[in-house]
Design a protein around this nucleic acid. Structure first.
Lengths: 237, 237
DNA sequence: TACTCTTCTGTACCATGCAACAGAACGACA
DNA sequence: TGTCGTTCTGTTGCATGGTACAGAAGAGTA
């Protein structure tokens, strides 16, 4: 029951963090309007810190501020989603290569532990537990690259994708769990062998495969829900 | 003498753009203090839009806001500079690969024209003209990748490096002009041949080489100025 | 001299009020 | 009915004032 050690988090930070997690977590729909006044009342603060939080989220690509009109949760177009996945492939691939060059670092052990727990989750066919482990896996790869700038930009882009929402979906494709687990396993082996070039290539392939699984699963989910296609929002400034 | 077609650029945008170019252009030293009040008077506006501009520049990584203390032009540590160069290598390499896959696009002709003008600049030993062409070359590579997200993140990082300031320096190393020009030439040939894998590798090597040239030139400049080492500022939050 | 405590100044942080604009709702007119 | 012009409402953009904090400068003490 310890008092906050750093109680001095500015209000705008609190608002920005709160909104960010609501957006990436999916509580706020794409395209939803974010009124300064409403948010100010919701957080119990004045409009100023809310404005500054929204400003930051705009720079992060999570919301779009239309001058004199309002602020809206960013709705990435299909083109943007493709671009973001391409970047995911590039950055995770590069991270794997850098990781391999660094040898035995703590993150490597963490990866091995991750895969062991993942094996159990696969054996139990527990997609929810596995989804969390997948997120941890990719986060470890990025951290293992030892490049904080890379990590910053990577996280920013994953936020734009609202990726944590998507992982679960991508694993709903039949057979993907086992496949994904085996890919992770191979990546770790190659990284352990310090073969950066191969690690980069395999990581890229893995990202492409999981993207494809996601796209397939999205169609599957749509069909399951009786919806014809994927056409919800094409809102663009 | 035409009136501005879009006179409706918000004040904060004007301030942000002005400060950004002053920082990346080198008019504002690393570590310089940016007082809200002073900037407000300088731009003839109130503190509010200045605050919002600074907030954005912070998210872009150009300034550091120390709460209740002040805002300062970001002074990247040597570690951060190395990380940024590593990212430059990753992104430009990936861009070259994507570029090669796109075949005959307008940017390819623009690259060829760029290299031709660069040859003339080299022949005339005009480092200033060549520096501009180098910037254009890299910008074209990025644009040719056809991935706007990649381009956005690339530009953000080059701003953090204040790269435009550095190019001139890196070319002051004897013999680097010719070397650089020949590397550009080879990159274009490989892209024309649609060999993405090789293009990526060569582009990475080129970035590494030009980074090395820059580091060498910086030592050279220091020695020339009679300074012992590179130790100016280690300011960190 | 060295150290501690107090005061003071400069800064960012937040609250609030006014103004300007975008877009919707409405009504007049053809 | 359809179109155009007007009014009106909601929203953000900007200005300003008070507050709280960080850090420097100074006074006091050993």
């Amino acid at each position: 029951m310890q008092a906050q050690v750093f109680p001095t988090q500015s209000i705008q930070e609190r608002v920005a963090d709160g909104l960010r997690s609501q957006i990436t977590g999916g509580q706020l729909e794409s395209g939803a309007a974010l009124s300064e006044i409403a948010l100010a009342e919701e957080f119990g603060v004045s409009r100023t810190p809310v404005r500054e939080a929204l400003k930051q989220l705009q720079t992060e690509g999570l919301v779009i501020i239309r001058p004199r009109v309002g602020t809206f949760v960013s709705a990435p177009t299909r083109l943007e989603i493709n671009e973001l996945f391409q970047m995911k492939e590039i950055l995770e691939g590069a991270a794997a290569r850098l990781f391999a060059a660094r040898g035995e670092i703590p993150e490597l052990d963490a990866l091995r532990a991750n895969v062991m727990r993942a094996e159990e989750a696969v054996a139990a066919d527990d997609a929810t537990a596995y989804a969390l482990l997948v997120e941890e896996f990719h986060e470890l790869i990025i951290r293992g690259a030892g490049n904080e700038k890379l990590a910053q930009h990577y996280r920013m882009m994953m936020n734009q994708l609202a990726y944590s929402r998507l992982v679960q979906t991508s694993l709903s494709k039949p057979g993907r769990l086992v496949e994904s687990e085996s890919e992770h396993h191979r990546v770790i082996e190659i990284i352990s062998a310090k073969d950066g070039t191969t690690a980069e290539r395999m990581m890229r392939e893995h990202v492409r495969a999981s993207q494809q699984a996601l796209l397939d699963a999205m169609v599957f989910a749509d069909e399951y829900n009786g919806r014809p296609g994927r056409d919800k929002k094409e809102l663009q400034k």
